[in-house]
Design a protein around this nucleic acid. Structure first.
Lengths: 198, 198
DNA sequence: CATACTAGACCAACTAGTCGGTTTAGTCAA
DNA sequence: TTGACTAAACCGACTAGTTGGTCTAGTATG
């Protein structure tokens, strides 16, 4: 899929697929359903995407792109002091979290559902997580310590811990229908980083 | 399902369903597939369970029962000192983690996939998580602090953090095919509790 | 005989994907 | 402006195979 030229049909399909797959997962979401929601015919669907799996891959790319723009696009970028910047980043993501992940995380959803059955999609998700880790590392640097330090973590480890907290709290929040889990997750992680960067 | 009398047919079906649903998820696992793997006819299946969804509910109950036995059944129970007991519990679960969750967690899997489409199963999962939280609370008590304490957490919050760490690291481990994520999760959580209980 | 269980053919509904044909938008010559 | 030509986008009935679930005909055991 050439990202310089996402047609409106593709966009409609992607948006519909995103909503449906966040709600019901990949296998339970049918192509017909996506077409109905996107108000697009079956023919148009298979003109825009060669298969359901290819839609999945494109969807992950599109979702990741949109997500990172929101996550890494806040005003915290202007802050010069790295430690302040880090904490403002956390506040920014915390504030955006409900909008971003209230219905779940597509990377986590599709990754889990298709990890064993679609290597293509598993690798796609894995690569997106790695890209995220990389961008988070740069931000969490102020809280990182050389690995010799007792109780200290590298920036990479902190990025991993952040993603673990995010995906884990999304699971519990959905299952228990209690968004507070995510809020507390952010709060705790903030305290964690703050104590490390003192 | 009366748990005093799980027939061997039910057991075979539950075991097959567990393996298949951990690997491919609930909707992608077909009844025919389960029958084939369990070496049971379709007639027997629908004699043992009234529907696929009822199998799902029973499976969660069975899985939870077996899981808690392994999690809370280690020798750490003999330890008298609460703090020591807590740390030995963590070591015990850490050691058992690969056996327990290498292919994922059924509670997390089914909970996520069916949260929006099957209220019955979502509630079932939610209730199992609550039971787990309760039992964890008792164990993490030594690291708990009255909520007034700065940077302190209640036992309930610690139990939640543990489940968040567990579910989150299982997601990343499966997607990245790197079990180290879970190992590091346990390690970090251990350090977290230890620093809180000093 | 009666009850519990098993077998697998069968069904209506649904699935991803196809295919012949139509519409739309743009290009170019006259 | 007009009309001929083209190519991409679009349409939805259709296909071949699969789905969860049913049903009748059995078998084993008391």
């Amino acid at each position: 899929m050439k990202w310089m030229e996402v047609t409106s049909t593709q966009e409609k399909i992607l948006q519909a697929a995103k909503t449906l797959m966040l709600s019901k997962g990949y296998p339970a979401t049918t192509v017909d359903e996506i077409c109905a929601k996107a108000k697009v015919s079956k023919g148009s669907f298979y003109h825009a995407f060669s298969s359901k799996e290819e839609l999945g891959v494109s969807l992950l790319e599109w979702y990741h792109q949109g997500g990172t723009e929101k996550i890494f696009g806040g005003s915290f970028n202007e802050v010069k002091d790295p430690k302040k910047k880090m904490l403002e980043f956390l506040d920014h993501v915390d504030r955006s979290s409900k909008e971003l992940w209230h219905d779940g995380c597509l990377l986590g959803n599709l990754g889990m559902e298709l990890a064993e059955t679609s290597p293509k999609i598993r690798l796609e998700v894995s690569s997106h997580f790695k890209k995220l880790t990389h961008r988070l590392e740069a931000i969490f640097e102020p809280a990182a310590q050389s690995k010799a330090a007792n109780g200290g973590y590298s920036a990479k480890e902190l990025a991993e811990q952040f993603l673990v907290m995010l995906e884990g709290s999304i699971v519990l929040a959905r299952v228990n229908k209690d968004w507070g889990v995510v809020k507390r997750g952010f709060q705790n992680f903030r305290a964690h980083l703050q104590s490390l960067s003192q």
